[in-house]
Design a protein around this nucleic acid. Structure first.
Length: 627
DNA sequence: CCGACAATGATACAAAAT
DNA sequence: ATTTTGTATCATTGTCGG
C-alpha cells in the first residue's frame, strides 16, 4: 500500500501504482501503514490519469484470454458473447476453446448468404441441436429472442438426456479419468474431481451433501444437472419443480427459513431478505466468490443490451421484491461498499451482467478511515475504534455536535470516562465526524467524500456549484469502485467501446467507473434533471478529453418510445442501460415522506423499467435486421 | 432570493437477552 | 422461540443572516 515511496515528487506516482502480488497481498491483509508527509501530499495532489484507468488487475480468477483471442481473430464480441454462455452450459465450464472456435468459424462462414431467420436456424443446428427441434421452438417462441430460444433448446436437450438417463457423464468421466479411479468413494476427491471438471465449488459441495458421501461422480453430476433443470423450469414457467432430494440431511440450521440468504421467489408474499455479510456475488479477494449466479437470469432478460439498476438496500418492506419483479425477476445483488472503500454504503444492484472474471480498478482504495484521510490519524483517540465511516449522505450534521464533543473532552482533559466516550461516539457516528485536531472533530470535506466515493478530486467543484449542492449530489452518487467492479466484465465484451443510456445520471458515477475501467464510451445519452449535475458531467466529459458523443436529456418522464428508438437507430443501439432511481421515498433518512416505491420521486423507478423495456424491444428488432 | 445551518423520527434488520 | 435492545440510514423542512 505504500506504493509511492520511491520517487514521488509530484504527479509521477503512476508507475508505482501498477499492480503487483505484494501490493495486492498487503491490501488484502489491511496492514497498517505509516504515512509520511510526502505520501499525504501525493494523495492530496492526486489526479486520475488515463494510465490509471487502464491499470487493472484480475480478481480471484484470471481474465478471459480465450475471448480476447477470438476478438483478435476478428469475431465480433456480440457473437462470442451470445455463443459462449450456451456453450458453457452445454459442455460445462471448461468448454474447449476449440469447440467455440469451430462453431464461430462455421457460423461466420454460413452467415453471409442467408436471411436472418434461416441464419438463426443454421446457427442453432451448428450448435448441435436437431433441426426438427430448432424449427419447432422457433415457431413456438418466435425468433424474437435468440437467448430465450437457445435456453429453451438447452432445457429440452438436458431433459432428453435425463430421460435416457445414461451417458451424459461419459465425456465427463473420460475427462476426469485419472482423478476418478483413485477413490471415487471419498467425498473429498469427488469434490475435487467435480471442481476440476469445471463445476462451481458451491454447487458441487451442495450436490455431494445431498447425494451422500457414497455417491460417485456420475451420480452427483446427475443431481447437478437435475437441479439446474429444475431451476430453469422454475424461471421459465413459474411452476416450481419439487426437488426429490431425499429429505436433505443438511438441516443443521434451527429454523426452516434459515439457510443461506436465499432470496424470496417469484411469489409476492415472500420478501427479499438482505444477506449478511453483504458481499453480493463475492469480493475481489475471493471471499464468497461465485462463478455463477445462485438464481440464474431468466431467458427473457439475458443481455445484451445489458442493464444495471441501483438503489438503497434498506428500503421499506416489499420494495425490493417489487423492483426485482419489475426487472425480469432478477434477484438483486446486495453489496456494502465498505468492502471497497472506507465508508459503508449498502446498496442493491439488479443487473444482467456476467459475473465471472470481474476485476478491480486501480489504485485500490485505502480501506481504513485513518489511511484514506491520513491527517486524522494523529488525532484519532484510541477509544474511537471506527475504521469505517457510515454511509455518506446528502447532508452533514450540525456544527453544534462538533462543539459538544470539544466541550465534553475539555471537561475531562481528553480522557473521558467510558460512558462519556460512548455518548460521544454516538454523535461521531451519526454525523460521520472525523478527528482533525486536539479534542476537535469535523464534518467531511466535499473533496474527502469525492475520494471515498472514487471520483477525481474536485469532480463536483466549480461551475457555480455551492457546498450544499455538492454534498447533496455526492450523497446521491454511486461508489465508483463498487460499480466498476461489477461493470468490469464489459471490458472484454466491448473492446471497441460501448453505447450507454445513463438514466438518473447524477454526477456520472457510472461514466466515471467506465472511464476508470478503460472502456471507451462511444455514446452516452445522459438523462438528468438537475442542471448542476449536468454541468458536472459535462465538465468531466471535457476534462477527460472524451472522444465519444455526449447527449443530454433533462427528464426521464419525457423520454418516450419514439425518441428512444430514434436515438438507437442513430447510434446503432445501446449496449448498457445504467442508472439508480431516486431513493427519496425509500431511504431511512427521510422523516417526512418515506412512502415506498409509489412516492413522488421514487416512482420514477417505473420510468426506468419502461425505458429499459423499450430499449430491449428495439434492440431485439434491430438485431433481427428489421426496424 | 440564496446559501448555510439546525431541528425533525421511523423503519428494518442484527444481535443480545429472555 | 420470542422479546428487547442496539444500530444505521443516497432526507425534508424551516430559520436566519446575507
Amino acid at each position: 500500500m505504500v506504493e509511492h515511496s520511491a520517487s514521488d515528487d509530484e504527479g509521477e506516482i503512476d508507475n508505482n501504482l501498477q499492480w503487483s502480488p505484494s501490493r495486492s497481498q498487503s491490501a488484502r491483509d489491511g496492514n497498517e501503514v505509516d504515512w509520511s508527509d510526502d505520501d499525504m501530499m501525493a494523495i492530496d495532489n492526486f489526479q486520475w490519469s488515463p494510465e490509471h484507468y487502464n491499470s487493472v488487475r484480475p480478481a480471484g480468477v484470471e481474465t478471459d484470454e480465450t475471448v480476447a483471442r477470438f476478438i483478435e481473430m476478428g469475431f465480433s464480441e456480440e457473437m462470442i458473447a451470445q455463443l459462449r454462455k450456451p456453450m458453457v452450459r452445454k459442455f460445462g465450464a471448461n468448454v474447449d476453446p476449440a469447440q467455440i472456435l469451430e462453431t464461430l468459424v462455421k457460423i461466420s462462414a454460413s452467415s453471409e448468404a442467408n436471411s436472418s431467420k434461416s441464419k438463426l436456424i443454421d446457427e442453432l443446428i451448428l450448435m448441435g441441436f436437431s433441426e426438427e427441434m430448432v424449427i419447432k421452438v422457433i415457431n413456438e417462441y418466435g425468433e424474437e429472442n435468440v437467448d430465450e430460444i437457445t435456453n429453451v433448446l438447452l432445457s429440452y436437450a438436458e431433459a432428453e438426456k435425463l430421460c435416457k438417463r445414461e451417458d451424459e457423464d461419459i465425456n465427463i468421466i473420460n475427462l476426469s479419468d485419472g482423478e476418478n479411479e483413485l477413490n471415487s468413494s471419498s467425498e473429498v476427491s469427488t469434490l475435487q474431481a467435480l471442481i476440476k471438471i469445471g463445476y462451481p465449488r458451491e454447487e458441487a459441495s451442495i450436490a455431494i451433501e445431498r447425494c451422500g458421501e457414497t455417491a460417485n461422480v456420475a451420480e452427483v453430476t446427475d443431481f447437478i444437472a437435475a437441479a439446474r433443470l429444475a431451476r430453469e423450469y422454475d424461471d421459465f414457467f413459474e411452476e416450481p419443480i419439487i426437488q426429490h432430494s431425499k429429505k436433505s440431511r443438511v438441516d443443521n440450521e434451527p429454523s426452516r427459513r434459515g439457510r443461506n440468504p436465499r432470496m424470496a421467489m417469484s411469489s409476492d408474499h415472500q420478501l427479499i431478505t438482505l444477506p449478511n455479510p453483504m458481499i453480493g456475488f463475492g469480493l475481489p479477494d475471493g471471499t464468497g466468490l461465485m462463478t455463477e449466479r445462485p438464481d440464474p437470469i431468466p431467458a427473457v432478460a439475458c443481455g445484451p443490451p445489458y442493464f444495471y439498476y441501483e438503489n438503497v438496500a434498506m428500503a421499506p418492506k416489499g420494495v425490493w421484491t417489487t423492483i426485482s419483479k419489475e426487472l425480469y425477476n432478477i434477484k438483486p445483488e446486495f453489496v456494502d461498499s465498505k468492502y471497497f472503500c472506507a465508508a459503508m454504503r449498502k446498496r442493491g444492484y439488479v443487473h444482467n451482467l456476467p459475473i465471472r472474471n470481474r476485476f478491480q480498478i486501480l489504485p485500490l482504495q485505502h480501506q481504513k478511515i485513518q489511511d484514506v484521510l491520513p491527517l486524522t490519524r494523529k488525532w484519532w483517540p484510541s477509544w474511537d475504534e471506527r475504521t469505517k465511516l457510515n454511509c455518506l449522505v446528502t447532508c452533514g450534521g450540525s456544527a453544534t455536535d462538533t462543539e459538544k464533543v470539544r466541550a465534553e473532552l475539555e471537561k475531562f482533559d481528553g480522557k473521558p470516562p467510558p460512558h462519556v466516550q460512548k455518548a460521544l461516539l454516538v454523535d461521531c457516528k451519526k454525523g460521520n465526524l472525523v478527528w482533525v485536531g486536539k479534542n476537535r472533530v469535523a464534518l467531511l470535506e466535499p473533496e474527502e467524500i469525492e475520494r471515498l466515493l472514487g471520483f477525481p478530486r474536485d469532480h463536483t467543484r466549480g461551475g457555480g456549484v455551492n457546498t450544499t449542492e455538492r454534498f447533496k449530489s455526492l450523497g446521491n452518487s454511486f461508489q465508483v469502485d463498487t460499480v466498476a467492479y461489477h461493470l468490469s466484465v464489459l471490458k472484454v465484451l466491448f473492446p471497441n467501446g460501448i453505447n450507454v443510456l445513463s438514466l438518473f445520471t447524477g454526477i456520472g458515477g457510472g461514466e466515471v467507473a467506465l472511464h476508470r475501467l478503460g472502456i471507451p464510451m462511444k455514446v452516452v445519452v445522459s438523462v438528468e434533471i438537475s442542471r448542476v449535475n449536468r454541468n458536472i458531467l459535462r465538465s468531466f466529459w471535457e476534462q477527460t478529453n472524451q472522444e465519444g458523443t455526449l447527449i443530454e436529456i433533462t427528464d426521464v418522464t419525457e423520454l418516450k418510445t419514439e425518441e428512444i428508438e430514434d436515438l438507437m437507430e442513430r447510434f446503432g443501439g445501446f449496449d448498457l442501460v445504467i442508472g439508480g432511481s431516486p431513493c427519496n421515498n425509500l431511504a431511512g433518512g427521510n422523516r417526512v415522506s418515506r412512502k415506498g416505491l409509489e412516492g413522488e420521486q421514487s416512482q420514477l423507478f417505473y420510468d426506468y423499467c419502461r425505458i429499459l423495456k423499450d430499449v430491449r424491444n428495439k434492440e431485439a428488432r434491430m438485431r433481427r435486421g428489421g426496424l
